[in-house]
Amino acid sequence: MKLKLVLLLSLFIIQLAVPGYMIFEQNQILSEGSVYKFKTRPIDPYDPFRGRYVTLTYAVNQERTPVLEGAEIDSEQWVYVLLGTDKEGYATLEGLTDQKPEGEQDYLYLETYWGSQAEGYRVKLPFNRYYASEKSAPAIETAVWRRQRENVEDVYAVIRVLNGKAAIEELMVNELPIREYLESQQEEAN
């Protein structure tokens, strides 16, 4: 009986440690990670557990990312992608490698999708979900898509990157966080 209770207590600790570690890891990336701006477009789907979210499809992922010299890469393989920025300040994917980068340059650890060694691969950018309430999620999609149709504006996700892992800091429209942007839209409408 005593052993059972000790084991039960240990299980409780492990059960708490999993969400605890998730929180710790995210906070570490958000506080220490480098900032990148990924141009994006949100679409509004639904997850049975986590509720409403907007799927973020990234402009940078429309093209294939080249394979760096010396690397051998397949479809659906976990690889390192080196990050850079273009002249407008948006993030770019510079190349894929199967060796962990050692220098100062930031990188992401992710899975390739499809493509070829010669022409490069499309990759699965993992930070593709921005959770919002059942009211906000469709509003985000409508607002951003309407805005993009009428006048092409900046819609991007601020991503923090640390040791190959990434976390979404904020979804921005025209330098405004999405929630503030939606509020300003509502005020304009009133």
């Binding site: 059960q15 969400p19 995210q26 557990f49 986590r50 993992p126 979900r129 976390a167 979404i168």
Partner: peptide, 15 residues
């Protein structure tokens, strides 16, 4: 257990 992991994922937009 499922609810906690799901809610944390939601709060931090964890993929």
């Amino acid at each position: 257990v499922a609810a906690s992991i799901a809610l944390i994922s939601q709060t931090y937009h964890i993929y």
